[in-house]
Structures are given as structure tokens and as C-alpha cells.
Amino acid sequence: MDALFVLLHSLPETGKVKVVGIYSARSLAEAAEERTRLLPGFSDEPDGFTIKQYEVDKDHWPRGFVRL
């Protein structure tokens, strides 16, 4: 199954997550992270980056969710 790599950035104090980009290879997501780390705001929060791999054509919340 095909996979995509999502580059995310989050701030711990707010819990808000930004989708920086979606890439066809991990190496492209890693290169985007390096570029993005230099931008205003992101350069102040360099530890907020995460790369997640997602399979295409698959449900990723099969059990729903619960509000806290």
C-alpha cells in the first residue's frame, strides 16, 4: 500500500498542530523540515516538528474519538 509523509508542527502550550506539508517520501519531508526550521516562528520552536507516515486509502480513526 502507498504511504504519504506528513510534516507537522505543534506548540506544546496550545496543543495546536499545523500541517506544514504532505510528501511522497520521508526524505522530502525531512528536507522540508530543514527549510521550514529557518522561517519566522518555526525557528523559535525547532522541537515542534514531527513526521508521520500515513497509508493511502485507509481509515485512520476507525474507533471514533472522545472529547476530553
Rank of each mutant, 00 (worst) to 15 (best):
M1Q: 05
D2S: 12
D2L: 11
D2R: 11
A3W: 05
L7G: 02
H9W: 05
L11C: 10
L11H: 12
L11K: 07
P12W: 03
E13S: 06
T14H: 04
G15W: 01
G15P: 00
K16V: 13
K16G: 08
K16N: 08
V17F: 01
V17G: 00
K18V: 06
V19S: 05
V19K: 09
V20N: 03
G21W: 04
I22Q: 06
I22R: 10
I22W: 02
Y23V: 11
S24M: 14
A25E: 08
R26V: 09
R26N: 08
R26F: 10
S27G: 08
L28D: 08
A31V: 04
A31H: 02
A32K: 01
E34Y: 09
R35M: 09
R35S: 12
T36G: 03
T36A: 07
L38S: 11
L39M: 07
L39E: 14
L39P: 04
P40E: 01
P40W: 01
P40M: 02
G41M: 00
S43P: 04
D44Q: 14
E45G: 05
E45Y: 14
D47W: 12
G48Q: 13
G48T: 12
G48C: 14
F49Q: 13
T50A: 14
I51M: 15
I51T: 13
I51H: 15
I51K: 14
K52R: 15
K52W: 15
Q53P: 07
Y54K: 14
Y54C: 14
Y54T: 08
E55S: 14
K58P: 08
K58H: 12
K58A: 13
D59W: 04
H60D: 09
H60V: 02
W61R: 12
P62E: 00
R63L: 13
G64E: 07
G64Y: 05
F65T: 07
F65P: 08
L68G: 15
L68R: 15
